[in-house]
Design a protein around this nucleic acid. Structure first.
Lengths: 154, 154
DNA sequence: TACGCTATTATCGCACACGATATAAATGAT
DNA sequence: ATCATTTATATCGTGTGCGATAATAGCGTA
């Protein structure tokens, strides 16, 4: 056992950290997602990108970024990995040569069926009724907007 | 404006993703923390480590890891950066040569006063009353435990 | 038309996260 | 006492995130 050098103070320094609880919950989701996505060869952020391409392929890099809240500095290498895995193609938009268009390959399209069970597994793992999940989502979205406004007005 | 290639489907693929809302809220916190911590020369994970050392220095790497939910593969380089910044010392525990003991330097101790305003700023940026914050924390902790149990029992 | 401005993506560097593995010290069973 | 096991930390490789910057394409105005 850990014969700790300094026992915790009466007031746990982590106790008031809402941010830490958010982080911990987010990590817990990642752990549940990982064994579900690994057989598909996807990481969680890659899954989010595929989730948007399945109904709406093709999409530009920028539009994907708006949907998953990432920018090209993160998305470009991520999408290149999806391309190397044979799931998507990357081509310049002839209409606007600044844009890169990401489209599903047949293999990428086919992956949708293999991932169909994932959302249900996640829902089950939360152990929360649908109504409570939606209430939590509303709370989190309100909090996110307030925080971003506070950061912007600084 | 973005003349999108494929308009979003009626059902937004991101809408049912609780995990994504958690991630977005977590990122929003990071954006508020960054301008507060940057003048102190700390990143957010580094701040979490300091937050535990301020009341309870010295602590072993393992004990810090238990408190902030990180392991040595992440903590070792992080703490080395704190050491290079002159905030902490790293020494082998003579009682148990496997352990590395992390202790605040005078400079690290002094940083506590300069960081004293941070929690209040964060609390204000949430725009939530204390009671609601604590309710959200309870919900998140319950969810985290359920998710981790689900991941473990798999 | 030329020149400046904006938009879109890519590149670079740094700092996490984390799985897998390595190393060394302590522990325990025989 | 010896050797396998466990514990504590470190190392390595991959994949995000993200600030800063670059490069190219389109746009607008004189």
């Amino acid at each position: 056992m850990a014969n700790d050098l300094t026992p915790p103070t009466t007031a746990d320094p982590m106790a008031p950290m809402l941010c830490f609880d958010l982080y911990a919950a987010s990590q817990a989701f990642t752990r549940v997602y990982k064994p579900l996505l690994a057989p598909l060869g996807l990481t969680y952020p890659q899954y989010l990108v595929m989730l948007n391409l399945w109904p709406d392929s093709p999409l530009s890099v920028g539009e994907i970024g708006r949907r998953v809240s990432l920018e090209s500095n993160t998305l470009t290498p991520l999408i290149k990995r999806l391309q190397e895995a044979g799931l998507v193609t990357r081509t310049r938009d002839p209409e606007d040569e600044r844009r890169v268009v990401v489209a599903l390959t047949d293999q990428g399209q086919a992956l949708e069926a293999q991932a169909a069970h994932v959302p249900g597994c996640i829902l089950e793992a939360t152990g929360m009724p649908q109504a409570e999940i939606e209430a939590l989502q509303r709370t989190l979205r309100g909090l996110t907007r307030t925080m971003l406004d506070a950061a912007a007005s600084k």
